[in-house]
């Protein structure tokens, strides 16, 4: 670590406690205990992977190659084509992202750059509350509020006005991709909004002030100075939201309609990876069925690891690490 002597003395870290003469026994024991606890996190992840693979093994052995190539899911006759679930997961997540990202970014900009300061604590309390509500309650609300509203109002309206697009055709049944996508949008909104807010906070004030000093309007300053600077961070926030959307189980299970088919219309009933696991795992017919479901979970796990890693790296690139409380 390079420090000019002019720099203020950094915080004493426990990490550099090693003196040339060996720390005493208590310090060694404490360090060892902490190291074990930290290592436990790595151990947990290892156990998770091994356990997943173990449960999935019967299906992997039986040849789960048809996972992504077939759309025929019939556990009783032993065909495990996962395409409808993958399709449903992708479609609902895309809908969720398309709806949630503009709203979240708008919200974050309004809070951080435009709106009255007094509003901030109120809105961020609301966002924290959204994040704290259990997903089964979102599902309940979706099933009894959102689905009827879609069936009776939004879907007929979209069918009348945008019905020339294949995605907005079909009978308005309420349950389906659109309902699942919208409820996911509500659920991932807090994640995207709060990470975006954090990212916006890291934009140097001088950038914005520079633009404003040139006579830019507030929006122009945002577009010219703030958004370009925070683009990578907003992308990271989006990926985090996407990761949540892919894995969200209960709310989707309750409103997607649970039909293992592939349909171009957003109004149609579909299925998703987590939903099929939730519905079938407890009553799976034999090891291969269980294994196939665990295989789907393994896919979900892998995709979420990749998305989350990418998201964290992007956010870190912008924010360069969490703000460390350094006291002089």
């Amino acid at each position: 670590m390079n420090r000019s002597p002019a720099a203020p003395l950094p915080r004493v870290s426990g990490g550099a406690a090693r003196s040339a003469h060996g720390p005493n026994l208590g310090d060694r024991a404490w360090s060892g205990l902490l190291g074990l606890l930290g290592g436990a996190v790595l151990l947990i992840v290892g156990v998770v992977v091994l356990a997943l693979v173990h449960v999935a093994r019967p299906a992997l052995k039986a040849g789960a190659g048809t996972f992504v190539s077939s759309s025929d899911w019939d556990p009783v006759s032993g065909s495990f084509g996962a395409l409808p679930f993958i399709y449903g997961t992708v479609v609902t997540s895309v809908v969720a992202i398309l709806v949630a990202v503009p709203i979240s970014v708008g919200l974050a900009l309004f809070l951080q750059e435009m709106g009255p300061r007094k509003l901030r604590p109120v809105v961020s309390f609301g966002i924290e509350t959204l994040a704290a509500i259990p997903s089964v309650i979102y599902g309940l609300w979706g099933l009894f509020v959102l689905v009827p509203a879609l069936r009776d109002h939004l879907e007929p309206f979209l069918g009348r006005t945008l019905g020339f697009l294949p995605v907005f055709r079909g009978a308005p049944i309420g349950l389906g991709y659109l309902a699942a996508g919208l409820i996911l949008a509500v659920m991932i909104l807090p994640t995207i909004a709060s990470v975006t807010t954090e990212v916006l906070k890291t934009v140097p004030a001088s950038l914005k002030e520079g633009a404003l000093a040139l006579g830019a309007t507030r929006w122009e300053a945002i577009r010219m100075a703030i958004l370009p600077y925070s683009r990578a961070g907003i992308l990271g926030a989006t990926l985090l939201g996407l990761g949540r959307a892919l894995g969200e189980t209960m709310a989707v299970t309750m409103v997607i309609g649970n039909s293992p088919t592939i349909s171009p219309s957003l109004f149609a009933a579909g299925y998703s990876l987590p939903a099929v696991i939730a519905n079938e795992f407890a009553e799976a017919t034999g090891d291969v069925h269980t294994g196939a479901l665990a295989g789907l979970a393994l896919v979900l796990f892998g995709v979420s690891l990749i998305l989350n890693s990418a998201a964290r790296l992007l956010v870190r690139m912008v924010a360069s690490g969490p703000s460390r409380a350094v006291a002089s």
């Binding site: 996190v41 696991i277 939730a278 796990f301 979420s304 989350n308 890693s309």
Partner: peptide
């Protein structure tokens, strides 16, 4: 990264 893993996956574990 692990805090983003879907909870249903952990259920299978």
């Amino acid at each position: 990264v692990f805090s983003g893993v879907p909870s249903i996956v952990v259920g299978i574990v």
